[in-house]
Design a protein around this nucleic acid. Structure first.
Lengths: 219, 219
DNA sequence: TAACAGTGGAACGGATTGTTCCGTTCTGCT
DNA sequence: AGCAGAACGGAACAATCCGTTCCACTGTTA
């Protein structure tokens, strides 16, 4: 569940003091820590959040639970950005704006890179499916404008996100700058008008989702 | 080779039976294993090579030694490819051919991704410096042809290699295909003629070498 | 047959880490 | 003021992982 027993309606209003602040404190710390290193120990999250282990384990039954929550949040963010971009009238602008947002927020590291470290819920798989459909739609619309080269398929976006997420330097702000730069290069490549066609069989739908398969296998 | 104490001249000719074969068996296995996962245990290498632990530790004093060797080999491969490409008369062809080779051979994962897991030798740093100079020269020559957009700097190559190395699926052959495809997209972006200039401060020389710094610090 | 380089693989010890638990603090209520 | 209980900090625990060592064994050479 996304809202556990620590629901706001449950306790007296005073709970909104330290406890409620810790909720987001822990979640933010977890995002930062696991974004930097998906295999980081739980203690690193507690330290980063400035809380003890019990504050953490009161909210999440296990490390896996925390990771699942983080990943699901990222997935929802992805869907939200995709839907927002889809509202943009121009298909090419929607496409580039969408990619810029996803890369900027480092959503990819939260979703794909955390997959395989937990067993996913049916709801997550549903959201993942919707995310795939939405980004496919964005590609389609961009293609319809004629600005996107014709040999780009939906899953080339996965390649692009994976590539941008890999760019990393110690400073997070600088990382964002370098990613933005690299993304711009990449988008120019995707928009190249007369360039020859891309080599190799294009990525098949779902070919890049292999990290999820493990959790599907044992469900 | 770095010719260690396992030099051919040392033993009787019969040593060229199993022992000499194990040399490359172990090295190949190590490359495969650490390419897939830079933090893999040593035992995984032995298993992959089909040998026991002692066969491995007879040749390398420690895991660090093995990693250093692997990384240095990759570095030399990088330099060799760069020199070979530099012989090509056309600057743009030299540039693209070079990148194709490096990405194909996954040299980046061998060098940059292994850095920081061992203390590097002065010779390695020398080779790394030469590698940097060579790839800078290739960028310069490509720029001189006018086919490379003017706002590309030498260290954009580092971004590109990092990005391509991040693309990975379980099957190695398929991984190569997808990387080749992505590289083609990227190269079209780097060649884009009239496109607007790239955002953000470009990567500074050596900005992407942060993984090496740790070993420099304790030398 | 004696000597020995080369080897397989079990065993060891240190480090890491997810989770639990106990004593303490802080809050709201009487 | 005094109490009940939620929330908490952090040490302790148990399990696992992994680099390295060690010893018995094998095939070859002389």
């Amino acid at each position: 569940m996304t809202q556990t027993e620590t629901t706001d309606a449950g306790g007296p209003p005073a709970r909104r003091g330290r406890a409620a602040r810790n909720d987001s404190l822990i979640l933010d710390a977890a995002r930062e820590v696991f974004l930097r290193d998906p295999t980081a120990p739980v203690a690193a999250v507690a330290e980063r959040a400035g809380v003890g282990m019990s504050a953490l384990y009161r909210r999440y039954a296990s490390k896996e639970d925390l990771l699942r929550r983080l990943c699901h949040d990222g997935l929802r963010r992805f869907v939200a950005e995709a839907e927002a971009a889809d509202a943009e009238p121009d298909g090419w602008t929607a496409f580039t704006r969408f990619l810029g947002r996803i890369v900027e927020a480092d959503v990819h590291s939260l979703t794909v890179h955390l997959a395989g470290t937990f067993t996913s819920t049916p709801e997550m798989r549903q959201d993942a499916e919707r995310a795939g459909a939405l980004s496919a739609s964005l590609v389609e619309r961009a293609a319809a404008t004629g600005r996107l080269r014709r040999d780009i398929v939906a899953d080339d976006v996965g390649l692009l996100l994976e590539a941008c997420a890999a760019i990393r330097v110690p400073d997070p702000g600088r990382t964002r700058e370098l990613r933005r730069r690299h993304l711009a290069m990449l988008l120019d490549g995707m928009a190249a008008p007369g360039a020859g066609s891309l080599p190799g069989p294009p990525p098949a739908p779902g070919e890049l989702n292999w990290r999820w398969r493990r959790s599907e296998g044992n469900a």
